[in-house]
Design a binder for these strands. Sequence first.
DNA 1: TATAGGTGTGAACCGTGATTCACTTTATTA
DNA 2: TAATAAAGTGAATCACGGTTCACACCTATA
Lengths: 212, 212
Amino acid sequence: MPYRPTAKTEARRAAQKQLLLKSALTLVTQHGFQGLTISALAKSANVATGTVYKYFNSKSDLCTAVFKSATEKEVNNVRETAFPNADSEAVSCRQRLVNAITTFTERAVKAKRLAYALIAEPVDPQVDAERLNYRQAYADIYAELIREGIKSKEFPEQSVEVSASALVGVLAETLIAPLGRDQQHPLNEREEQALLSALKQFCLRAITGLPT
Amino acid sequence: MPYRPTAKTEARRAAQKQLLLKSALTLVTQHGFQGLTISALAKSANVATGTVYKYFNSKSDLCTAVFKSATEKEVNNVRETAFPNADSEAVSCRQRLVNAITTFTERAVKAKRLAYALIAEPVDPQVDAERLNYRQAYADIYAELIREGIKSKEFPEQSVEVSASALVGVLAETLIAPLGRDQQHPLNEREEQALLSALKQFCLRAITGLPT
DNA sequence: TATAGGTGTGAACCGTGATTCACTTTATTA
DNA sequence: TAATAAAGTGAATCACGGTTCACACCTATA
């Protein structure tokens, strides 16, 4: 038997797929999913259009893969901030909530086009479905934090699920407009800080039921 | 001069345009913007595809017109609830806030497909831009209410704009998931009431800074 | 009734970008 | 080196709705 895929070729294949994903992510980071076309990707990765199809069954699959890998990174960042390995319980839920919100928003304003693409850009339905999953993933993090806070009496009784989803909505909505206007009217440093601060206060009032 | 458009012909023209808009709205109410194609619209209004273009310059314009008229209706409903003509000041801001939220959510759950189309369905960029305007229109209503509440000491000091946008985000997000699953797992009456109640409490905590 | 402009028609056209596929090149083994 | 199979190629094809347009029909004046 004259040919058999071997560890080396499989590694190469995996590497190539990663290269495509990386190129695709760059395109999305710069121009959103709108900028992710097969031919643009092929060009930026120095391959032919057909090659892309050796690694992804369809454009939808490609978009979904890009979306998942990018979003997973974001979700993990937030999760690690909300539940740090060391001193898990040394920090108050309130503080960890603030930290989680800060992590999310700061990363979003640092990579506006990407954030917009992941959160709000009109996309292929398959990606949109995936979005629901990840919004839920964010909500799950907040839910756990809120549950813990209620248990420890830091937070008042409330519907954990609704509060968690609501936080996701607050962040998405208050950031979308700033992200949407992108180049045109970028927020200056001062405005950005003011937004971030007001956002934290709103969330804290909503969860803790205390005027800040 | 052998021909001149007259009141009668212009009325007829306006009526025809309204008929097209109404048919289009029906399509969107049933199948979302996804279901609004020129040929489907032509069929449902009993005209030829070309006729549609006598009334709308492009698909985008059509979608935008449908979106605007539908959303305007919703915004007005909420505005009237927030600022009733009679006894404007007899009712507390807190109560009027609850009323506004209730109006919005109840209408949304009663016409789920339409609500999803107006709030969250992937759409033509021109419509998406219009969405920003209307989200702002909702936010403006809440902003005015919150400002009034702060003035009268019902609500604590806060960033009016951020709080207002945040409310819009809360409503959109907490309703999208239920609206998204549409047919599959419709909420039953009890769940719907629970959601609505939790939602009100969250918003009140967020704005008033008092545990409910 | 002649004239001019408006409205209605729908099959043909078009643009865009995803997808295919016959072929070439590269990698692996005996 | 021969045999095999996978990876790479990119021009050609396809799909799909939006859009056009030459023509027929209708309405208002004089």
